[in-house]
Amino acid sequence: MVEQQFLEQLKRAFAIAKKDLRIYYKRGPVVIFGLIMPLFLFLAFSIGRSMPMEQLFTGLLGMTIFFSSMSIGPAIVPFEARSGTLERLVSTPVSIWAIFIGDVTASFIYGLLISTVPVTIGLFLGVNITHFLILCSGIILAAFCFASFGILLSAYPPTDVPSTVMMISNLVKFPLIFISGVFIPIHGWGRIIASISPLTYFIDLVNYCIQGTSYYSVILDFAALTGFTLLFLIAAVKIHEKTLPERLH
């Protein structure tokens, strides 16, 4: 009975995800932050430096997943609060957690779809992916992790101005890129700072799948990503549940 209800709520969460994908991924800023931004940063880092192909690929993949999975998530809830559709959603028989799982799912699917672009480019350019299955699992996990993170970023403060949330999320995103060793391998005690970023573990995992060497063990990379995912997901749902009444004011 309880399981059945849970599954039913999950189904409704997917309906919400479908709606999100239809609405939000047609928008300009989404394309910018999902595709153009990673490419831009990629060029900024790589032009004029002789980096091995493998390292370039790792950087491009890491950034693309990071940006695309988080591109619209932070704006969904403020936007819906503002347009009055959030009130409509809350009056339907869908649990609050299911609404947010739906939003996370939409971000996740988008991140996953976009990540096929750098992977395809890499394959074309002849990047040798030794552990393809591990890479795929890593991409899936990372996309879900960053999608949860994106929804978490809009939980507090409960503003209904999408641009405010976008600003906050950019303030968080860019430092993370720099401490995670996306383009420049990190040594020494930079590693300690790097260890607080989920992106670090994904980059490490990609290094393992391509170059065969990694700083952490594969198991630890997966464990860390899973831990971050659970943390973000639970925090996102809990904090949103708390701040939702203020949005519906």
Partner: peptide, 10 residues
Amino acid sequence: PEMANAYIDL
């Protein structure tokens, strides 16, 4: 509801 709130982008 009082305020029109269908999804205008759907």
